[in-house]
Design a protein around this nucleic acid. Structure first.
Lengths: 144, 144
DNA sequence: TTTTATTCCAATCAATTTAGTAGGTTTTCT
DNA sequence: AGAAAACCTACTAAATTGATTGGAATAAAA
């Protein structure tokens, strides 16, 4: 069970944008090629990832020459959960679809044995990433 | 991000074996075909899943006629984490492998932005499933 | 001892997801 | 006009998932 590179690259991009944001303390557009090269990520692939972050209003863009990407809010207003939901989809660790322990379809059954486990896991993950902002992970990094 | 059916089916099988175990209060071998049919799971596929649980000593078997599968310990001695580790592999939500924010390889770097997030998530998931036993989820089920 | 019911095992396969490429279009600044 | 950037669409290769198939080994029962 792993976070895919979508989530990973997305977090990296957000963090780089956050660093630029804090440096400038205002709109500071960063060219994607710069991030891609520095982090050794395929630019075209990263582009599609950041596009999702834009659709989710975490990032805004400036087209044309001197354009680039920029955080749409300050790092402390962006939850890690927002980033990961946009890139990895909802953390429904278990979608189930089978039958529960008494034979009923368990799409939403609380008596489905795997739903019981998954609900607990989901709850904890949610709790964790909804209480963590981009600002938080940046400061962890600075303290590194 | 989802638990695959491996984990789901494994939990279902363990739960069914646990019910049989509690009914008999001793060795009670259950035929896999019974579980597969009741839960509408491919028997051959379920077989390979349960094989892993055997390798991990959560389940023991009796071959031949009148054979079957049986829990190797009591439900309260089996952690959910054991089941999921055997079936889904370690919950390294992020294996990373890229470069960290200052350009160093971040295989284990604490300054890798995605490791910071993933470590936190992993920690919480671990905490959750290591403190949950098969007994626990059965009683949740009974209480419905 | 033969039959039957079961676990066990290895190879294969189809569908899906992931990760990445390629090539071009549009926008905007100089 | 030219250059540099975001934007968009289609394709592909590799890995993973979720099985299926066909049998071999084992052990109880007839």
């Amino acid at each position: 069970m792993k976070l895919s590179t979508k989530g990973k690259y997305g977090l990296i991009a957000i963090a780089d944008l956050a660093l630029a944001y804090k440096d400038a303390n205002e709109e500071n557009y960063v060219v994607l090629k710069t991030i891609a090269k520095k982090r050794n990520i395929s630019e075209a692939y990263l582009e599609r990832i950041v596009a999702k972050l834009k659709k989710g209003d975490l990032v805004k863009t400036q087209r044309g020459s001197l354009g680039g990407y920029c955080l749409a809010k300050s790092p402390k207003e962006i939850k890690i959960s927002e980033v990961l939901y946009l890139l990895e989809g909802p953390f429904d660790v278990c979608g189930c679809g089978g039958k529960d322990i008494v034979g009923n379809s368990c799409e939403k059954s609380s008596s489905c044995i795997s739903n019981i486990v998954c609900d607990k896991i989901n709850e904890k993950i949610k709790e964790t990433i909804e209480n963590m902002t981009v600002e938080d992970i940046l400061s962890s990094y600075y303290l590194g």
